[in-house]
């Protein structure tokens, strides 16, 4: 485990266990995720990294058979306590999905959707939309056609739109669930640039099955295997001198 983080800790997870019905999918996960940095989760398919990511904004609540034990504190607040408002939590912890999923609406309406429902006035929208699209590095490409359907954009543009849509709600944490796995290398590198820019203001957690991506953009990396958190450390440490045999086998490509 790394020593105290320079920007402090954003997410503290203690002894988290998760079951899908009888299937014990995550075992005693404990991890401290630092503020204003990029933390990557790597591991082979089915290792539980995406499942764990979805614990952090309680998207797993939507799966009826899912049961969770343990504690997750975000900014000191226990997000699984009875008092927690899940809707409010998801405002603070945004999520970008594997497959770009813009709504079948205009670019403008996609971005303004969240802020409008959260009660921001119509007058503020143009500025909010512009800022969000700028932060998502999409403004230059779409500023002259905000009324076009978001579904007319390319896959990479759609994914940056989804990032911008998340930013418009002003979260503290952004979870990325394999955001580039459906994209070409050029689109991928654009998204990576966006993520590196965003970590100045936001805490980023990214699930990726692309180890080069984890090495390129993350400050810390966690390696998951079969529902266990095997190793968590500074990214350089994980890739250059992993402490666990399984980690080394995985990053050197012996399995996975």
């Amino acid at each position: 485990m790394p020593e105290a983080y320079e920007n402090g800790t954003e997410i503290e997870v203690k002894d988290l266990n998760l079951w899908y019905g009888d299937n014990h999918a995550l075992h005693d996960i404990s991890i401290d995720i630092p503020k204003n940095s990029v933390t990557a989760f790597i591991g082979p398919s089915g290792c539980g990294k995406s499942t764990f990511l979805r614990c952090l904004n309680r998207m797993n609540d939507l799966i009826p058979s899912c049961r969770i034990e343990g504690r997750v504190n975000i900014n000191g607040e226990d997000i699984y306590s009875k008092e927690t408002d899940v809707v409010d939590l998801r405002k603070r912890v945004g999520m970008v999905f594997q497959k770009p999923n813009p709504f079948p609406m205009s670019i403008f309406d996609n971005i303004s959707y969240g802020p409008r429902i959260h009660g921001m006035s119509k007058k503020e929208m143009p500025a909010i939309v512009e800022n969000a699209l700028k932060s998502g590095a999409l403004w230059k490409e779409v500023s002259d056609r905000l009324n076009v359907s978001a579904l007319d954009l390319s896959g990479g543009q759609q994914q940056r739109l989804c990032i911008a849509r998340t930013l418009a709600v002003k979260p503290e944490v952004i979870l990325f669930d394999e955001p580039c796995s459906a994209l070409d290398p050029i689109s991928t590198s654009k998204i990576e640039d966006v993520i590196l820019e965003l970590k100045k203001k936001y805490t980023i957690v990214i699930v990726t099955h692309n180890m080069q991506q984890a090495a390129r953009i993350s400050d810390h990396t966690a390696f998951f295997l079969m529902g266990d958190l095997v190793e968590f450390d500074k990214t350089a440490q994980i890739f250059e001198s992993p402490q666990e045999k399984a980690t080394e086998d995985y990053i050197t490509g012996r399995f996975g």
Binding site: N57, M59, L62, V87, D88, L89, R90, K91, R92, G94, M95, F97, K99, N101, P102, F103, P104, Y113, G114, I117, H118, C162, R165, T166, V169
Partner: peptide, 13 residues
């Protein structure tokens, strides 16, 4: 599509 619902719920809607 479930994607639309997930996207909206994840925005705190």
């Amino acid at each position: 599509p479930k994607d639309y619902r997930d996207a909206s719920l994840a925005l705190g809607v």
